[in-house]
Design a protein around this nucleic acid. Structure first.
Length: 225
DNA sequence: CAATGATCATGC
DNA sequence: GCATGATCATTG
């Protein structure tokens, strides 16, 4: 088995690719693709995601759009335990801290990405080596009305705070399902933002993240629990 | 011991 | 620096 060289043309094709790697370990997938598996993810934290992208034929790159643009689907790997518990929060996208006038929930990047996502659970327990971690069954998900409402509520609250110059007092504690956290190579990276008095300030870049309770709910629902 | 805040790799 | 892929590790 080798990784596909083209993106999937249809949802069915994508589903087949997902089914083909379900149950396999990251070691199997890396070996078949001639890639070396890191001993741990202290470095190369995005390794799993990039390996799965390769196997599903996702268009690589850092473009702010879905992984499968033609299908309108976003791919997310989700680290879980063998008993199905979500281990980490999920990065959604970069948060712009200025120039957000005219941006609303309907046209924002968060909604655009979460409109239709393919969740791929992967064992992520640290006591299981990366090579041995198994890929689970893919879950095609679209937010229901209530889920979208909760996401929208948190998103609007965060965006209001950003616009009002409260970015420095915003912590990851805000938001029931969607949080704002630092997102940068290290603490030296800064970007423009609006300060409390409306002046331009420099602050650490932020990103939107999905809380664990939210993603847990998605997989529980998918496994009918 | 979960969650927040920090950090790693890569390609512009 | 921005944006993608995320997990690490200190701390409350």
């Amino acid at each position: 088995m080798t990784p596909p060289s083209t993106p999937p043309d249809t949802l069915e094709e994508l589903q087949h690719r997902v089914n083909a790697i379900a149950g396999l370990s990251l070691g199997d997938l890396a070996c078949s693709a001639n890639i070396k598996v890191p001993a741990n993810f202290k470095k190369e934290k995005g390794w799993t995601g990039q390996l799965i992208e390769l196997w599903l034929g996702a268009s690589a790159g850092s473009k702010p759009e879905q992984d499968f643009v033609n299908l309108g689907i976003e791919l997310k790997t989700l680290p879980i335990t063998t008993t199905g518990k979500v281990l980490e929060t999920t990065y959604v996208c970069y948060a712009h801290l200025t120039g957000n006038a005219g941006l609303n929930w309907q046209n924002c990047n968060v909604r655009n990405k979460l409109q239709h996502v393919l969740w791929l659970p992967v064992i992520g327990q640290r006591n299981i080596s990366p090579a041995q971690r198994q890929v689970g069954t893919g879950i095609f998900w679209q937010p229901n009305a209530l889920q979208e409402q909760r996401l929208r509520h948190d998103w609007e609250e965060h965006m209001d705070n950003i616009a009002l110059g409260n970015i420095e007092s915003l912590s990851a504690k805000a938001g029931d399902v969607l949080q704002l956290r630092p997102k940068a190579a290290d603490g030296s990276v800064v970007t423009d933002a609006t300060g409390v008095d409306g002046q331009m300030i420099k602050t650490r870049p932020r990103g939107f993240y999905l809380r664990k309770n939210f993603t847990q709910e998605i997989i529980d629902c998918a496994f009918d629990r």
